[in-house]
Simulated assay, not measured.
Amino acid sequence: MEKHEMAGDFPLTNKIVLVTGGGSGISFEFVRLAHAKKAKILIADLQLGEEARQLVESQKNVHFETCDVRRWKDLRGPIDISVRIWNDVPDVYIAGAGVFEPKWSNFWQDPEDETYDSIAINVNHPMKLTRIAIQALLSRNKKGVVCIIGSIAGLAGNYAVPLYCASKHAVTGFVRSMAPCEELEGVKITAMCPWYDIYPTTKRDFGLIATTDMLSSAVKTPLWTNQPDKMDQFNLDGAETVTAAQVGEAIVSLVEDGQYKGGTVLEITAYGTRVIPEWNISPTPTKLTGLVSQAEIDRNLAPIKASLNNQRTSLL
C-alpha cells in the first residue's frame, strides 16, 4: 500500500486553521495561541464570546463564520471561505464544539423524539469534520492535522451523564481507528482529553478512586458555566484544576509536535499530560484526600431520581 510523508513537526506559523466552537472556552484559547503564532484562523461557531469578538474585529487574519455543527452544510462552508480568502484549504482542523447533556438533549430528562442532538454535536460533527478535512487536504495534496477535543469521560463511565460519556468514548475509538491516516495520507488525527473530573456513580468505584479531590475539578468553560444546574449538581462552583489556557497550550503541542503521532489520545489533568495507551489504561492520577460523602452522591443523582420518580408516577 502506498505511503505518504508523515505530518511530522507542524508549526502553526502561516498555517490556515479552522476551529469549531472557537467562539469561547478551550477552543478560543487555542485560537488565541494560534493567532499569536501568526496562523490564519476561521472560527466556526454559533456566536462569539466577547474576547473572540474583539479578536475578529481587530485582526484581518481572524474570520468568523456562523456554524451549526449539526448541519453538515455548515461544516463544509468554512472550506469554501478559506479558498475564497486565502486561495487554499485549511491545514489544521480543531473539532472543539461540544455540549454536556443540556436540558434540551439529555438522556434522563429525555426531551427529544427523533434523535439525540448531543450525539450529533459531540460525535457526528467531529467525525464528519475529519472526513471533510481529509477530502480538502487530499484535493490540494497537502499534509494536515485534525484534533478533536474529547474528555477523560471517554475513558470511564458515569451514571449521571451517560450520553456525554458515550459520546467521548466514541471520539476516543474513532481517533484510534484513524491512526493509519497519517502514514497513508499525511493527515494526522488526534484527540485532546481535558480533565472534567466527575466522580463515578457506581458503588464499586467509591472506595477505589472517588475522593473529595475529584468532586470539585473541571476546566471552567461555558460548557459548565452556561449550565448553573450542572455546576450545582456536580459541586463545581469553586472548581478549576486545569485552565482553558493550559488545555489550549496542550492542543498546540499536540498539533505542532511530531512526537505525537496519528491516533494519539492525550490527557491533561492537574498532574500533567500523558498519552493514553490503547490497552491496560491505569486510572487517572488524583490525590486521595478522602472518600465521597453520601450527601455528595445524593446531590449528584438527585435530578435523575426525580426524573425517574415522575415517570413511575405517570405510569400509575
Rank of each mutant, 00 (worst) to 15 (best):
A7T: 14
G8K: 14
F10M: 06
K15D: 03
K15R: 09
V19M: 12
G21Q: 01
F28H: 07
F30Q: 11
V31H: 01
V31C: 13
A36S: 11
A39I: 00
A44Y: 05
D45W: 08
D45S: 11
G49I: 09
A52G: 07
R53L: 14
R53T: 09
L55Q: 06
E57H: 10
E57R: 05
F64I: 04
E65L: 15
T66R: 15
V69R: 12
G77V: 10
I79M: 07
N87W: 08
N87H: 13
D91V: 00
V92M: 02
Y93F: 14
A97H: 13
P102R: 02
K103E: 09
K103N: 12
W108I: 01
D110I: 04
E112H: 04
E114H: 12
E114N: 14
Y116N: 15
A120K: 14
N122L: 15
P126G: 02
P126Q: 03
M127W: 01
I132F: 08
A136C: 01
L137R: 05
L138Q: 09
L138M: 03
N141I: 03
K142I: 02
V146D: 06
I148K: 10
I149Y: 13
S151P: 05
I152S: 02
P162Y: 10
L163Y: 07
A166G: 05
A170D: 04
A170I: 02
T172P: 02
S177L: 06
L184Y: 07
G186P: 11
G186E: 04
P194V: 01
Y196F: 07
T201M: 15
T202R: 10
L208P: 00
T211F: 08
T211C: 10
T212A: 08
T212S: 07
L215D: 03
S216R: 12
S217N: 15
A218G: 03
V219T: 04
W224A: 04
T225K: 06
N226K: 13
M231D: 07
Q233R: 15
F234Y: 13
N235F: 05
D237R: 13
G238Y: 09
E240Y: 01
T241G: 09
T241K: 05
A244G: 09
A244N: 02
I251Y: 05
S253A: 12
E256A: 08
D257H: 07
G258V: 04
Q259K: 10
Q259I: 02
Y260C: 06
K261T: 12
K261N: 10
A270P: 05
Y271N: 09
V275L: 11
V275M: 01
E278K: 05
S282D: 15
P283T: 03
T284P: 04
T284Q: 15
L288H: 15
L301S: 09
A302F: 11
P303D: 06
P303L: 05
K305E: 13
T313M: 11
T313I: 08
T313K: 07
L315F: 08
